[in-house]
Design a protein around this nucleic acid. Structure first.
Lengths: 72, 72
DNA sequence: CTGATATTATTGTTTTACGATAATTAATAT
DNA sequence: ATATTAATTATCGTAAAACAATAATATCAG
């Protein structure tokens, strides 16, 4: 039951492109993609903070402690 | 408006001692204390996951994107 | 005071987030 | 089909930092 990164969903919902988010956050599109795909083992709070700021959401919207719930 | 770590609150609410959580999570008490005090710059998902498991909560309960809200 | 718990401090190691870049793979036109 | 754009994946390298191990203080409860 790992931590699931729901950035994917959030971007889709808000129709935000990876490119613009990456630019705002200050990380490369490549790394943002890795984060989106849940291929990073952790995250720095300042990165998380900027993502939350741009998406106007909470960490809880991006990180979920469950992996089987498909009823988003 | 940084990410605030609310582990402190969660432990108090559930009356869980740092020692037992640290042991469960598999990190030293020292490092857990740093995390509690918000003195780390990030967190690994597997650490976050175990904390959530032990406290039966979500990442959103531990991480907040605000620093002035006192109305918990 | 004594003992248990928690914080802080050091030092060191290993992991890894992230940059920079490029190649590949979608999509979306034209 | 062929550009154009957006997104993913892949390599390599580096700087940051999570974390261990340990010890020294605090802090709090008996």
């Amino acid at each position: 039951m790992p931590i699931r990164v729901r950035l994917n969903v959030m971007l889709a919902e808000r129709n935000v492109k990876s490119k613009e988010l990456a630019e705002f956050v200050g990380i490369t599109e490549a790394n943002l993609s890795l984060l989106k795909q849940g291929k990073v083992k952790g995250v720095r709070f300042d990165t998380l903070e900027r993502i939350c700021t741009y998406l106007k959401c909470q960490p809880g919207d991006l990180l979920r402690h469950e992996d089987d719930d498909a009823s988003a």
